[in-house]
Amino acid sequence: MIQAGDTYDPLLKRPFSIFRQEDNTLQFLYRIRGKGTLCLSNVKKGDTLDLIGPLGNGYPIPKGDFVAVAGGIGIASLYALIEQHKNRAHAFYGARNKDELLMLNEVSKFSKKICITTDDGSAGKQGLITTPLKVFLRNNHLPVYTCGSMPMLKTIFNIIKDTELKCYASLEENMACGIGACLGCVVKVRSEKLEVRSKKSGVRSQDKKNLTVYKRICKEGPVFDLKDIAWE
């Protein structure tokens, strides 16, 4: 959680993935999307910002080759994984257009293979990244690591739901505290598998036919097993 401004507007800290770590620096990659990121973009060299972290649970460390699926700025969450496991990632990188494919050269360099799509066809194939991903996963049984929009994650879920494939997704949501207190950032998770874990921190649904619980993205996440999410 990073302080965005020094007034009461914006008021709350903003959640970010750690993009890179290098020589005692932490690096964050973001796109200016609202008031918070706009304020951040005005921060100058030498300014000080409050930061709380690292928080929550990251991706499990890949044991061999893996698939990294980034939707747009979702690359910020996956980049370190790709860089630190050189030539292990089969990267699938989709964005609206060429300009939004940040760090493309580095991602290409550190990945074993890369597949690119854009909505407008300005780079790679025109279309959604999930289209080539679906074809690839048919013949390659590798764990999937992903960060991107909810519609993208849902499509990936539909691709893998009847397979043995594992998929770890880093989720996004509005957050206030980042430390599990406000219960503002939740995702509905199926609870059969999580019975034990839910005892400690979650709340079980009263409806026994369809057991679901809300999990805090900041604390139990932000990385979840895509198959645990209770898709509507």
Binding site: L12, K35, G36, N174, V203
Partner: peptide, 27 residues
């Protein structure tokens, strides 16, 4: 009895404030 709370989004920042509708989620 425990409460599950409201669906997301539950919070949104507003000028110098925030709105919440957690829905009394509790254990």
């Amino acid at each position: 009895t425990p409460r599950m709370g409201n669906p997301a989004p539950r919070i949104i920042e507003t000028p110098a404030g925030m709105l919440n509708a957690i829905g009394l989620q509790n254990i």
